[in-house]
């Protein structure tokens, strides 16, 4: 009479466990490193895209109003006719009101305020024209005070644009 062979015991041996764990650890190490790298890359992409969108919005807001403005008050070209830049811009809009765009470095915003060309107090717009802008400069370079260029930058991203005022005073 033959004895039936013993059924093999269910389970894993210690060696198999160790090998399996080691393989898993290597795979997890590679995958998690890759995920962290990609997360950082993705965060950088999001930052750049947000900055781009902020620049587009700020540029367009300023261009629309400046195009109909009547004259640039500040900055103006220097006495030796060289160009002059400032972090604030003052101009008269279509209605003759005095408007200023200025860069707030603490909040990284371009704000707008209205200084009435008449009775009434200064009104600062509650919402900024542009946000997330590390630096902004407005440059006057034309004799007739009708051309203003601007340069926005933040985190290695730049925007260079300009507006020619269509209405002379």
């Amino acid at each position: 009479m033959f004895q039936t062979s013993e059924r093999p015991k269910a389970g894993v041996t210690l060696v198999e466990l160790l090998i399996g764990t080691a393989i898993l650890a290597v795979i997890l190490g590679i995958v998690s490193r890759w995920f962290f790298m990609q997360r950082e890359y993705q965060q950088r992409l999001s930052r750049v895209s947000e900055i781009q969108e902020d620049f587009r919005r700020a540029s367009w807001n300023m261009i629309q109003e400046l195009q109909m403005a009547r004259v640039i008050i500040w900055p103006r070209i220097n006495a030796d006719k060289s160009l002059h830049s400032d972090t604030k811009l003052v101009f008269k809009d279509f209605n003759g009101q005095i408007i200023s765009y200025y860069h707030e470095s603490a909040t990284r915003q371009i704000r707008r305020c209205v200084i009435p060309n008449g009775p009434g107090g200064v009104v600062i717009n509650p919402r900024p024209i542009g946000e997330g802008i590390a630096s902004a400069s407005f440059t006057a370079s034309s004799f007739d005070n009708r051309l203003i260029s601007f340069h926005l930058s933040s985190g290695g991203v730049h925007a260079l644009d300009a507006v020619y005022l269509l209405n002379g005073d």
């Binding site: 750049v48 895209s49 781009q52 620049f55 587009r56 540029s59 261009i63 370079s141 034309s142 007739d144 009708r146 051309l147 260029s149 991203v157 730049h158 925007a159 260079l160 644009d161 300009a162 507006v163 020619y164």
Partner: peptide
């Protein structure tokens, strides 16, 4: 990013041309 920059760049030139 570069396309957005180029768009503003070209617009700047067009405005300077008028002056």
């Amino acid at each position: 990013q570069n396309l957005g920059f180029a768009i503003g760049f070209a617009h700047r030139i067009s405005q300077h041309l008028l002056a």
